[in-house]
Amino acid sequence: PERLAEFEARIARGEKIEPGDWMPAEYRRQLIRMISQHAHSEWVGMLPEGAWITRAPSLRRKLILLAKVQDEAGHGQYLYHAAETLGVTREEMVEALLSGRAKYSNIFNYPTLTWADVGIIGWLVDGMAIKNQTMLAQCSYGPYSRAMVRICAEETFHHKQGKEAVLLYAKGSRKQRQMVQDALNRWWWPTLMMAGPHDTDSPHTPLLLRWGIKTKTNDQIRQEFLNEHVPELLEAGLVPPDPHLRYDEKTGNWVHGPIPWDEFWKVIQGEGPMNRHRLLARRRAHEEGRWVREAMEAHARRRLAQAAD
């Protein structure tokens, strides 16, 4: 209890907690959960966008998308490292993902049906992610906070590129405009749900706030996202598929209609449109890569043995 008080005082002073430092078991547990989920999200998140690399319609877009997906793999890597500082191994985390025990962001359980989805993901999904990550860059745990700083810088780039593409298509040909509006219709609610359940339905939040793991609530994040993106979407001639969406003069906030939480909970429980496909893809890559990893290990052992001679 004394150590807990000291720990909480450090956080209150804005100090970072580092790997060797004492921390409550629950702090460690929550961080492992969050960071590994976050790492899995990057790894699984490569799939829906990665599916369009082979179809990107210009050299520039293809290069941008390749760089983006490469960044996601890189983020996965930093985050797995950050989680490892808390005493969990990459193998354990991967095993938790492949067995279906670990979660990753719900958003990646939706399919990318057209090229416009890639633009919408870059602008809106990454836009929401940045809101969350900017907050997490303030996180009390040093390695997570530092990973977030680095990730945010790259995500901001993705966000800009996604927006640029969407704006281009929104004033493009009839089919391009339709394509991008369709994509918005499909991704709008899943994106809003990315921020997580309403504060009233989010039991972890108070503790996470107290320990400085989070510094904002889900609803705050969602509100920031709306206030930034709604005016820009409307300006571009795109209409979010929410008949209740309105600007509240009093608070200066954009107010959304009822969110389909039923769907959210179903998707979390594994019943989203692409859950099984995503896990299958990861499992298949893992299975088909087994002999490769074995060859790497065998070769490394042989090298080591040679060096020892």
């Binding site: 790894w43 390749l66 890189g74 890597q77 088909e288 890569g289």
Partner: peptide, 18 residues
């Protein structure tokens, strides 16, 4: 890309393609 045998090779292969 996204289907390599290890995450590090996802990075490498995306980089090669790029």
């Amino acid at each position: 890309v996204a289907h390599a045998p290890i995450l590090e090779e996802d990075i490498a292969i995306a980089n090669l393609a790029q």
